[in-house]
Design a protein around this nucleic acid. Structure first.
Lengths: 339, 339
DNA sequence: TTGTACGCGTTATCAC
DNA sequence: GTGATAACGCGTACAA
């Protein structure tokens, strides 16, 4: 790899001049510009971005921390594709670091990115608590943005959406269509999202004066297989239900499969509603509807805000809260009506 | 951010000593070690990885280039999750760069990663030709690995699998179950994978003395919607068929949806087979089977090889060709038998 | 318009 | 054991 020094020598100028030509800053005569370009060409010169970043003390790179536990399925791909595209549009690159499966490892991942002198770090946390993140943000100069959590102190550094509201909405949707015995399948209960969706479900039942029946609540782990298992545990209680709210689409698909296998007609006998919207979902089954999880929007907005702050130096103090929820219907309302 | 110099001053030693303590190389007395650790703690010192990388001329980062056109769905997520995990296991990080949607942009993405002094670059190409990539590999000292293409010259820098064989397998699978009128839906025909799968289909028909009927071949674009459109164009020809080979699972799902909507029973009247295996596929429909695309294995193997070469300095000259194909069945063979 | 000299934060090679 | 000092490759005041 040839260096700037060598190019300078070839062109018969100093490296300061080469630098000026490359950056377009400062005055350089057309004649020497020519010389320099020619020398660059000949030498096959390429700038060393490490050196440049060191000198400028910034890297044009944004770090992203995502937990291992999310590393599969369309949710992960949505986070990543959105982040990579949006950053590329703004001339930055994405460095992905595995948050593994503990708070300590999430910490280390953030630290690593900061040590690499990333301009900023985005984390989709799983194990770090809100307070821990507030603390981390305080300790560092570089902006650290948190997706899908409501921070206590640094609200301008986070973005979140109304998971409780979406749990409420899904349940209400079924209630309004005549369902009374509505089962609920949770996600992993160590996830705030799972807890919020469950609480939305309970609130909806309460609001319509339907008692919460613990026999109608089963615990899943986000995966299709755990959806299958949850159905089994629900049926074991021999309690009737005409609808199921599954805390994400993957479990909803597992539920659908299991019910089909048992010869239970979906959605005629039992309706299913999920969350997240996996891309192929609209094609899957007229039996399955979902409440959209606005991950893409969260990522998109958080990056917009980040770029604005990196370029403009100003970070909006405004709270970002996405509450625009909607149910996507594969079909007309018909099939979801309780018989 | 405090620097090594400041830590040295605090500890009353030179920065050379601090460096020795940190790296664990060279002799340092226990007493001064203590001092240094204390100073590091007090100063809240963190090493600047940019500076370290510049001095060492390596970055512990591996670049990955993926085209925009792949940025969705489970295929993308499989590539990424596999790459990130495998690299993290080996203490390296993943930098993802958007290959956008042209050969030129794929070139630039590779160049950027090299300029960043990534230790190596992995590309899942879409637009660059095999010859162009062979040339790029020659021009650079850092290893550049190519996934899903057979290079002409640098075979040890690539990994690929038998897409033609899998197209053949899927078709043969149906033929052996009694089907004769088998429709085929291609992927985007600017993709080598799409072309190879089609040629496998044709070869299977030939081998069983079934003529290739152009009316039974429709062109899709990998998306579920294009699968729907392909079915429409097939039906427009008023040619009967009892089975469909769709060039990937997403299109297969579109096909299934469309046939269901038309009241055509799947798989009783028409059987469908796809490729790729999306994670939820086994839960979707007993009507859909797929031939697995070994992306994960390709990524995994190419990284193993890469790490071996980065750590050991030796790059195996052996050809890597994955030919272990298999059909995943959601169900027993029954439903796929032609009536 | 151009060149000199220094700084960015490390690592590594010497002497001491 | 430890401390100067020279790389690493680039940006940028400041001087000329």
């Amino acid at each position: 790899m040839s260096t700037m020094q060598e190019v300078a020598k070839k062109a018969g100028v100093s490296k300061a001049t080469v630098s000026r030509v490359l950056s377009g800053k400062g005055y350089v005569s057309e004649a020497t510009k020519e010389q320099v370009y020619k020398a660059i060409e000949e030498a096959g010169y390429r700038p060393n971005l490490l050196a440049r970043n060191l000198a400028l003390n910034k890297s044009q790179c944004i770090g992203l921390v995502v937990t291992n536990t999310l590393y599969n399925g369309s949710y992960f791909s949505e986070i990543l594709s959105q982040a990579a595209k949006k950053l590329a549009d703004n001339g930055r690159q994405l460095i992905l670091v595995d948050g593994k499966h503990s708070a300590q490892e999430e910490r280390e991942a953030i630290q690593f990115l900061l040590d690499l002198r990333c301009d900023a770090v985005i984390i989709y946390p799983r194990f770090l608590t809100v307070d821990e993140m507030d603390e981390i943000i305080e300790q560092h100069k570089q902006p650290i943005m948190v997706v899908n959590r409501k921070l206590r102190k640094h609200q301008s550094h986070c973005i979140f959406c109304d998971h409780k509201g979406s749990g409420f909405l899904a349940t209400k949707y079924l209630i309004e269509r005549g369902h009374r015995a509505i089962a609920f399948i949770t996600g992993s209960m160590d996830s705030p999202t799972a807890i919020e969706r469950l609480s939305g479900y309970k609130e909806a039942l309460n609001q319509y004066d339907i008692g919460v029946n613990d026999n109608l609540i089963a615990h899943g782990k986000w995966s299709p297989a755990s959806g299958v298992a949850a159905v089994e545990s629900l049926l074991a209680h021999r309690e009737k239900f005409s609808a199921v709210v599954a805390s994400n689409d993957e479990m909803a698909i597992g539920v659908m499969k299991k019910l089909n296998d048992l010869g239970i007609s979906v959605p005629d006998e039992i309706s299913i509603i999920g969350f997240d919207n996996i891309p192929t979902a609209p094609y899957l089954s007229p039996a399955l509807s979902s409440v959209k999880d606005p991950v893409s929007e969260m990522i998109s907005q958080v990056i917009s805000r980040l770029i604005a702050m990196l370029d403009g130096g100003y970070l909006s103090k405004e709270n970002i809260f996405i509450s625009d929820l909607q149910v996507r219907n594969s079909v007309a309302d018909g099939p979801f009506t309780a018989k």
